[in-house]
Nucleic acid binder design. Structure first.
Length: 479
DNA sequence: AAAAAAG
């Protein structure tokens, strides 16, 4: 299990019977650590500061007790058109996902919810906001829009959730959030979830929370042993060919590929489609319709490859995703952890492969420093740049068995017959030109003594890359 | 330096 559970049972947490029934329907019996810690805190009615990454089960950690609290007061006593709970989250997809969770766990309760975000027609949202509403999940921009136009009245909010607060600050939402906060009643319960605690998060928490309870669970990067991580050294110009090769060679049934740029995501998706691999790109320049469609198809398994920017790095919960690829390494080492956290979720194992150009070696070092381990560099058998329009047929014919969704054994990425040559970065990179990295290893290239070279100098001179420029977009979106 | 989010 990647998501740790506890020895507790959900029926010991004081949640009402309809909620327990919905939890059981969803197949859960045991809360994760963040749920076990956060649920009693939220039920107590106090403010909460929670340190939790995505993938720890934190969404249910606040959704479940909030449903309980709201359902204690009958809807008939509550004014219509006044959401009683507001959940703010950085991306549209995350907002949609959280609202789905609200609906899932609230299905036996007479509570109503909706989700509000930009990129789509506002009129259906306006119509929905006129009807009774208990829980409103939103991204800040569109919500503020509606609030300014008096489409929604936030004066009845009893519970506020700021999810992924650090990310919202990174994305320059602080001004919007402050404006929204000013519309809320003073008397309310506040829950703040953040993966990291920068000074800015602390400042936000200080102004927002009153005598908060504090819960924290281990960062997932130290716990993600079940995600098998490897690196392929490859020139940037050969990455797209290698990507097609890997997908076909390993017969990956489903893979989420991260690129550094939106343009890069488009180009890779086009290349894969050209190579008869079903693929779609998702990023912030796509229409919301295209984004929603691509994600839905990927989630239901009808889309083989989803090529994404870091829009999909955090929080997206894709059931039983076996394989993640970093087509380029992320600029911020923490994002690597978030990206590979899309696999190995909910009790399944996963594999994460990173395609690394020598230009990215510093990023790789930063990542290895963060996760406190060296990621093995694995040779790709049988791939030669510019010489692999089609991969060789796999030795054993593939059975047309469907997608093995529940896979217990080794992740798909590493079939037993793939010889894994683990060479140290020094051995590979200084000994041969990049163009030679994919030719099958000849005997004199074997350097078994170097296989486990532990690079002591992993952090010489590169202090952690603070995301120094990301937060102060003081101009905001000029309004 | 890129991406996300209002249009």
């Amino acid at each position: 299990m990647t998501i740790e559970t506890t020895s507790l049972n959900f029926n010991e947490l004081g949640l009402s019977e309809p909620i327990q029934r919905a939890i059981a329907d969803a197949g859960y019996t045991t809360p994760t650590p963040i749920q076990a810690k956060a649920i009693p805190q939220v039920l107590s009615g106090g403010d909460l500061l929670a340190g939790a990454q995505t993938g720890t089960g934190k969404t249910a950690g606040f959704t479940l007790p909030i449903l309980h609290l709201l359902s204690q007061k009958p809807l008939s006593e509550v004014a219509k058109g006044h959401p009683r709970c507001l959940m703010l989250t950085p991306t549209r997809e995350l907002a949609a996902q959280i609202e789905e969770s609200v609906k899932t766990y609230g299905k036996y309760l007479p509570l109503t919810s909706t989700v509000i975000f930009g990129g789509v027609n506002a009129n259906p949202q306006i119509a929905r906001l006129k009807k009774p509403l208990d829980i409103l999940v939103a991204t800040p921009g569109r919500l503020l829009d509606h609030a300014n136009q008096k489409n929604v009245d936030l004066s009845g909010v009893e519970i506020l959730v700021l999810d992924e607060a650090d990310r919202m600050l990174d994305m320059g939402f602080i001004r919007d959030i402050k404006k929204i906060l000013a519309m809320l009643p003073k008397q309310r319960q506040n829950l703040l979830f953040s993966a990291t605690f920068s000074d800015e998060i602390k400042a936000l928490a200080d102004g927002l929370l009153h005598n908060p309870g504090f819960v924290e669970v281990a960062r997932r990067n130290t716990a993600s042993e079940l995600v098998e991580q490897t690196v392929h050294m490859v020139a940037q110009s050969h990455k797209r060919d290698l990507m097609s090769y890997l997908i076909k060679h390993h017969d990956w049934k489903q893979v989420l590929v991260f690129t550094r740029t939106k343009h890069g995501a488009n180009r890779l998706a086009e290349k894969l489609i050209k190579d008869d691999i079903q693929a779609a790109a998702i990023h912030g320049n796509k229409s919301q319709g295209a984004r929603t469609k691509a994600l839905a198809q990927f989630k239901d398994g009808s889309m083989r490859v989803l090529v994404a920017t870091d829009i999909a790095a955090r929080g997206l919960d894709i059931d039983q995703l076996p394989q993640v690829v970093n087509f380029e390494l992320p600029n911020v080492p923490e994002d690597y952890v978030h990206r590979i956290g899309r696999t190995g979720r909910a009790g399944s194992s996963g594999a994460a492969v990173s395609l690394v150009d020598r230009e990215e070696l510093k990023l790789l070092k930063d990542i290895e420093k963060l996760i406190k381990r060296e990621i093995p560099k694995v040779h790709v058998e049988g791939f030669t740049p510019n010489a692999n329009p089609e991969p060789e047929a796999p030795r054993a014919p593939r059975q047309p068995h469907g997608r093995p969704r529940k896979q217990q054994g080794k992740p798909q990425g590493q079939p037993q017959n793939a010889p894994s040559k683990i060479l140290s970065e020094a051995a590979r990179h200084q000994a041969m030109p990049q163009s030679a990295l994919f030719t099958p290893p000849s005997p004199n290239r074997h350097q078994p003594n170097r296989q486990n070279v532990n690079r002591q100098n992993a952090n010489n001179g590169n202090a952690s890359r603070g995301n120094t420029n990301s937060t102060h977009r003081s101009g905001g979106r000029g309004r």
